[in-house]
Structures are given as structure tokens and as C-alpha cells.
Amino acid sequence: MTEYKLVVVGAGGVGKSALTIQLIQNHFVDEYDPTIEDSYRKQVVIDGETCLLDILDTAGQEEYSAMRDQYMRTGEGFLCVFAINNTKSFEDIHHYREQIKRVKDSEDVPMVLVGNKCDLPSRTVDTKQAQDLARSYGIPFIETSAKTRQGVDDAFYTLVREIRKHKEKMSKDGKKKKKKSKTKCVIM
């Protein structure tokens, strides 16, 4: 069974824990209790493949930012979460993405942009803004509501699919490099 290491990042209060708990335990946590770091595991079937999701729910508070490099190193894919009623959390996505790329030393890291709290009427981040940002990053965008469960499975499952595509691409690139290195030079 394939294991996928997913990391949920975003500013404090955007609903990272609520999304994760909704996926794992099928219930909505409405009281806000700032996370330092929590880890969850769940076995699911995605596109006919049974897999184990190892999900790291991270601290959004700035005082825990020193811990970010460590979990970013171990993560295979990242859910970059903002709240649709919090423009600052949307603007912060850029910083999370840049930090992930720096730590992973790669421009090509599996990510999904997630606009959470889409059940709320007080939207300050337009869907088109988020779609445009995701398009500019070359990553999928999904709106979710941890409260109603809308888009929750889709967000995590899409990230797994992005990781699969990335692994497939990397193995193809690896095979191309191996083929090239088999060419021999004969000096007579």
C-alpha cells in the first residue's frame, strides 16, 4: 500500500485542523484551538488504489514558523489553505509557496490551493482571484467548507493525484537520464 505524506499549511484560523478532522473523523470542530502540530493517518481508496494518507496539520501562528522547514522537508505534497473571508490569509499563500519551493529546492512541488469556509456569506476573496492565482502557479484550486464537508475529500484526493503525477514524471525523467548515460565512448 502506497503511503502519501501530505502537509496542510496556511495562516492561523483558516480551518486547516477543521478540514483535516472532517476528512479523518467526519465531524466539524467549530471551536478554535490553535494547533502546534498534529499528525493523522487514514486509509482510503483513490482511483481504485488503496493508500495510506499521513497528514500533518501544522501551526499557522507566526511564533511556530521555525518548525516549518522541518515538516516541509518531509512532506510530499501540500494543501495551501486560505479562508475566503480573510484576504490576508490569501496573500500569505505566496509566502508559504515560496518557502516550500526553497526548502524542497524545487520549482515543481505537488500543491493544491484550497479556499476554505465557502459556506460563509462574508467572502472577501473572489473565486476568480483564487483561480487566477492557482493557474499562475500551475496547481489545482478547490473551494471547501469544513463545516458542510463540501470539497473536503476532493481537496485531499486531488493532492494525492498531483503527487502521483509528480512521481510518474520524475521516474520518466530518471529513465531518460539513465538511457543517456548508457551511451559509451570508444577510443581507438
Rank of each mutant, 00 (worst) to 15 (best):
G15N: 00
H27I: 07
T50L: 03
Y32W: 09
E49D: 08
K42D: 07
T20G: 14
A59C: 09
V8W: 02
L56M: 14
Y64T: 15
T2F: 05
L6W: 00
I21V: 14
G12P: 11
R41C: 08
A11L: 14
K5S: 05
T20N: 14
L56N: 14
K16D: 00
K42Q: 08
Q43V: 06
I36H: 12
A59P: 12
Q22A: 03
L6F: 10
S17F: 02
Y4Q: 08
K5C: 01
H27A: 13
E62H: 10
G13P: 05
A59V: 09
E62Y: 06
E62D: 13
L19E: 06
T2K: 14
D38S: 10
T58G: 11
L6K: 00
G12V: 04
E37D: 13
E31G: 12
S17H: 07
L56D: 14
I55K: 06
G60N: 12
I24L: 15
E62C: 11
Y40G: 14
D30A: 11
K42I: 06
Q22W: 07
A18V: 03
E31D: 11
A11S: 05
E37C: 08
V29D: 10
G12Q: 03
E37W: 04
Y32H: 14
A59R: 13
A11C: 06
D30N: 11
T35C: 06
Q25P: 15
Y40H: 12
L56F: 09
V29E: 13
D33K: 07
L52T: 15
D57I: 15
D54H: 14
G48A: 03
E3F: 03
R41G: 10
D30C: 08
T20I: 04
V7Q: 04
D30K: 10
Q43I: 04
T20H: 10
I55P: 09
S39K: 09
K16E: 02
K5H: 08
E31L: 06
P34C: 12
A59W: 05
E63W: 01
L6M: 06
Y64M: 11
D47Q: 03
V29Q: 12
G60M: 06
V8C: 04
E3G: 15
T35L: 02
E63F: 01
Y64F: 12
G13E: 09
L56G: 14
P34R: 06
E3I: 05
N26R: 05
T58K: 04
F28P: 07
Q25F: 01
K5F: 01
I21Q: 15
L6Y: 01
I21A: 15
R41Q: 14
D57Q: 06
P34S: 11
G15Y: 00
D57G: 06
T50G: 09
